[in-house]
Design a protein around this nucleic acid. Structure first.
Lengths: 225, 225
DNA sequence: CCAATAGTGTCTATCAGACATTATCTA
DNA sequence: TAGATAATGTCTGATAGACACTATTGG
């Protein structure tokens, strides 16, 4: 006679970059267990509606943000007897990136979702093991910052190199050499010059777009961490 | 009313290195569906016996090999409506490494398990999506060969640098510079000189052991692929 | 001695780090 | 012009690639 099947959920750690901070989207749980606690956007796999796990992740993110994230990447899967009071449970965790303005109107219209600075998340008590999941996702994203420009998907469609560098600096936790940062991106040909400039203070900055190859490109050499 | 829960299995891609080849452990399925087809060692999560997913992987590997692998690392999770004829199913896939002699006596005593050369696996029709899972695991292991010495866990406890280099060459698919390969391992201090030598032909080769730090150490620079 | 394999010396090429310098905008 | 930010010039240092060389065994 077969065992009870474990409960399967999909959770996403959705990051963005705004106000010089890395932020994570949290939602307030409406149901028991852990009701009213803040948690990652996610939920139970719907075997009728969802074709595959990525669809579950996208569906749950769309419910909260109104749109699909620009970047979605499977992080890890945790499963154990103890992580959920209901019993044996599994969560498949995705890391997602989006530009804040691409979904802000939708999020600010609901009270049960908010962006929280990554620095402040550690002082909150989230549902289940979600604190750990965010730490794990942030570590993976930091690694990506050392050898790719995937973090750029957390920026607006058009962005400046200074913005991208600052985001990487936040992730890595130390300042980077402007020359090194730009050289490697130039040489790999990862960005498209949109021809437009952003004027704020000082010399106007060129606005770039990510090439599709930027999603998976990895440099042979890491920046120093 | 809740949906039907998906079926959750754990499968492991267990690699070893022997006869100048990379080999994968396959087992013959004893039950429907896909009965009598070769498949990855794995099975359904036992929510009574298994504490967590890694335990499931270890339990299933132990059934087939008699021992725990020296290296076990979660690869990815696949889940969809279509990958198993029984309906919505999920598999959590692990990559594992072991020295062939650490488990050969147990494997050769059973008829339903065999080592197959990685080169030949692509010409076999395995159960479910297991061909794809092996390809995915081999790709990840190749990446590891470019920036770590984790593949060394597929060798015996004591091994020579030439053996380790040849294994990396097989994974990467091209010859490596002996000097480059040794330099980076020396500088990172990843190996212990056991003081013993292997005498076969020519000059005796120093036998090394992996330091524990080798498991997770990553070089800042990749070898060229 | 030769064949075979292990292990080293050393030069070059590449690319990240450091940091000074120049460029282009607004007030 | 001064202040601010963007972008470049250029030197140094670390490390992988290339490849010749030396070392140590058995026969």
């Amino acid at each position: 006679m077969p065992n009870e099947k474990p409960l399967v959920t999909v959770d996403s750690v959705l990051f963005t970059y705004a106000d010089q901070e890395i932020q994570v989207l949290l939602v307030k749980r409406a149901l028991a267990p852990e009701i009213d606690k803040w948690a990652l956007p996610g939920g139970i796999v719907d075997t009728d509606a969802d074709e595959d796990l990525e669809r579950t992740a996208l569906r749950k993110l769309q419910e909260k943000t109104g749109v699909a994230p620009r970047y979605l990447d499977q992080l890890e899967t945790r499963g154990s007897q103890s992580r959920d009071p209901r019993g044996w449970s599994i969560t498949v965790v995705y890391t997602a990136l989006i530009a804040k303005q691409d979904c802000q109107s939708h999020i600010s219209s609901v009270a049960d979702a908010q962006w929280v600075s990554l620095d402040n998340v550690s002082s909150m008590t989230l549902a289940f093991d979600h604190n750990e999941l965010i730490t794990s996702a942030a570590e993976r994203l930091k690694q990506r910052a050392l050898y790719s420009i995937a973090p750029g998907y957390a920026l607006a469609d058009k962005f400046t190199l200074s913005e991208l560098q600052h985001l990487h600096e936040l992730l890595i936790g130390k300042p980077l050499q402007k020359r090194s940062f730009r050289r490697r991106i130039d040489q790999a040909g990862l960005l498209i010059d949109t021809g437009k400039k952003r004027r704020e203070h000082g010399r106007p900055a060129t606005l770039y777009k990510l090439k599709e190859k930027s999603r998976n490109y990895t440099f042979l050499r890491n920046l120093e961490s």
